[in-house]
Every structure is written in C-alpha cells, then in structure tokens.
Design a protein around this nucleic acid. Sequence first.
DNA 1: GTCAACGAAATTGTTGACAGAACTGAGGAC
DNA 2: GTCCTCAGTTCTGTCAACAATTTCGTTGAC
Lengths: 234, 234
Amino acid sequence: MIKNAGKAADRGNKWANNSFDAVMSALQQDIAFGRLKPRERLVEEELSERFLVGRHIIRAAFKELEHAGLIRRRQNRGAIVNDYSTEEVDELYDVRTILQHQAAQRIQLPAAPDLIVRLRGLNDTYVHRGQAGDLDAASVANDTFHQVIFSACRNRQLAHLIQQYWVKTAAIHCYAIANPALAEKSRQEHFQMIDAMESGDRVSFETLTVQHMQPALQAFKAAHGGWHSQARES
Amino acid sequence: MIKNAGKAADRGNKWANNSFDAVMSALQQDIAFGRLKPRERLVEEELSERFLVGRHIIRAAFKELEHAGLIRRRQNRGAIVNDYSTEEVDELYDVRTILQHQAAQRIQLPAAPDLIVRLRGLNDTYVHRGQAGDLDAASVANDTFHQVIFSACRNRQLAHLIQQYWVKTAAIHCYAIANPALAEKSRQEHFQMIDAMESGDRVSFETLTVQHMQPALQAFKAAHGGWHSQARES
DNA sequence: GTCAACGAAATTGTTGACAGAACTGAGGAC
DNA sequence: GTCCTCAGTTCTGTCAACAATTTCGTTGAC
C-alpha cells in the first residue's frame, strides 16, 4: 500500500499521449481559427479516418466538445459547430468578466519575480510571432500567457473555470488576433498588465484584466451582429 | 428549409428518455447521498448489468462524471468516487460564493408574483418531505428550489454554471440535510429568502444567498477535516 | 520469515459489424 | 406545376467479441 503511493505519484496525473487528447485539441483549434465554420457539419466517420482513430474516440470527443459548448448535437442527426447568438455571447463575456475579475483580486501583488520573468518570455513570443504573421503560434503563446496569470489566483477551481470559458470563446478572441489594430492594442495591454503586476498596482491590474476582453467582443459583435440568432435550426 | 424550422423547434431540445441520462442521474444521486462512498471503486461491467445497459454507456457516463469532478479515472485502472481534499472543498465553495453572489445581483427584485408562488410551493415540498424524513424527495425539492431562483438571474450561462457546481458539491450539502439542526436552519433561511425576494430587499437576499451555503460547508469540514488530504493515491 | 518473480483472474481499451433513424431524390396523383 | 409518397443512401446508436493492461495470489529462493 505505502510503497504504491510513490510509484503512482511519479507517473503523473493527466494520462496523456492519448489519441483522444490529440483529436480534442485539433478540433478545438479548427473551430477557434474558423477552419471549421459555424453551422458546419461534423461527420464521425470522416474525422475517424482523418485522425486515424476509431469512431468511438470521435464520439467521446463530440460529447466533450458538446459539453464545452463548441458543438451542438441532436439525436441521430449528428454534430454541427455551434454559433452563439448575440445574447449568448454577451452572457459568456459577462461570466468571463466575473471570473477574471475575481481571479485578479486573488492574485498576490506584487507578483513573484520568476512569474514576471515567465510572463515577459511568453509575451515576447506572442509579440514576435504575431508581428511575423504566425497567428497559430501567437495564439498558443497568448493562451499560455493568460493561463499562467490566472493560475496564480490561488484557487485551482477558479483558474480551471477561466480556462474552460477561454476555450468556449476561443473563436471570438482568435477572430480578433487577426486584426492588426486589435492585436497591437492587445500587445500594449499585455505589457501594462505585467508592469502592474510587477509594481503591485492592483487597481490598474484588475481594470486591465477586465477591459482586455472588450475589443475582441466588440469586434465580433460588430462583424456577426444581428442576423444569425433566429436561424437556430435548419 | 423554412418549414423545417418550426418542425424542429417543437420537438424540444433536451433529447431525453435516454438510458444514458438515467445512469448519469442515478450515479450522481448515489454519490451525493453517500450510497457510493469516497474512494469506492466503480466497475464498468457491474454497473452495466445493474442498469441493464451496454458497457459503452457506462463508459460515457464515467467520462462525464469525471468531467464533472465526481469521480477520478486512471488508464486501465478504472474509476473511483472522488473525495475532495480540504483545500479543494474551500476552493469549490469560494467559486460557488462568487457565482451565487453575482447571480443574486442580477435577479430582478421584487420578484414576479408567479416566481414567488412557484418557490413557496417548492419550499413547502422541501419542508414537508424533510420533516417526514424523506430525504430523497426533500433533496430533489431543494435542488429545484435553488435552481429556479438562480435561473432568474437573466444569464443562462451563469445559471448553468451554478448548477454545475451544485452537482459538484452535492455530496457536501446532502450531508448537511441529514442533520436535523442544519435542516431546520436551512428551512428558515428559505422562508427568509422568499420574503426578501417578494419585498425587494436586495441586501438581505444577497446576504442570505451567500450565507446559506456556510452551515453545510462547516459541518462537512468538521466531520472530514484534516486526515484524507495526503491519502490521495492508494 | 521476507522478498521477488511468475502466472491466472479480473478489468479496461479497442475493433468491427449490424440495426435503426434521418436525409435525398425520383416518381406519381391531383 | 405542386405536393405527397416511397425507396435508396448516409449516418448515427448499439452490441458483442477481441486484445492489452493491471491486479492478486502463489510459488520458490535466500
């Protein structure tokens, strides 16, 4: 019993290397970057042979993606990529605002030096990849940047929840990265956030954390506003 | 195209009558009421013949329960009922406090008369079933009571999230219902909450909403405090 | 008596095939 | 010309058997 404790602990917790995880992240990215467009149909067997995995894995991934709110399923009718109505987008961002504001309040400021170093490194990657036009890598760096920040909130449940809603709205904020003006604003705010964390300026940090979400939301609503909320079932 | 819109809408959204849903809610209740105890092993084939369904349905249910945080799985080693460490319990209740407080702020007060009527009805059931010792039915009424309240927060995402965390901590607050003193306090607070909603006393309502969670948390921590956080892997 | 290696039992992960529901398009009635 | 009906096709949901892994009990060496 006792010797097993150590043996089990060193093997790690998230049993990775699974084809399931690969499928999940691939589909998540495809949806986030718009390679799979809203209302597009997802066929199990098609994906099954694309990823070279059994159909049951695709099925499991669909269940998880549905739970995450990225796709929609109906019995015997398959899965389609979800497109949020305007109201849903507002509600999602309302929730994100709540969660991120609360998380920001729980982060110890001024932040530890090694955290600052890590964030500056990630942000450098984000800036350089973004300016080089490598949106894919920039997006990954951006994801990690925010995840690292919110992981410092000293509440793993809260951090996990923020991550969950980050994925839910990935299609929205990835949409904004492609816009040069918005991307530049995003980069500036990142620098300001790090500075605020380093100096311990809690008010600025919390304000930045919340306002940082707005440009993507506004751009998305301006682009997709008004026409697709009544076309729910087809 | 156009005629399909109406046809699809009237069929309803949550395709129920699935054996999957039956298995899910049965297992959720078993865990919540402690019929399945923490660290207890769940064997696929066992449940498969208990519920008279294929093993793949049990498998899918496990995946969902794992995602909900009610069970824990490791590759080729099956599933066990999750027991939260003291820190996790604190974090979960911190998140619930955030969510429910924010939801309470978003509810329109004074509440609509038909909402009040509905809540009084549900609470009557809760009180009577609880005093009759029918904890199962009382718990269902209690679930519905709070779900109806938070569904009035005009943010479906937020309401859904609260429901999600309600399920996560079901084993904790169901534990409290069994305690007569705590149950009595719970009943009193329900009446006070309804009164505050009816009269539009927002301060009282928000305070009650948050404090209503505390007794169960304290009782649980007092009962399970301190000994099982280091015994994670066995 | 303790410990390690081995083999059997139990349990999970995977595959392929089959049944049933929903979509598609042609043919016929009005 | 429009609408309805009815097969054919496509896709999802379900099932049973197979393969791989872990766990548990036994044996044997020291």
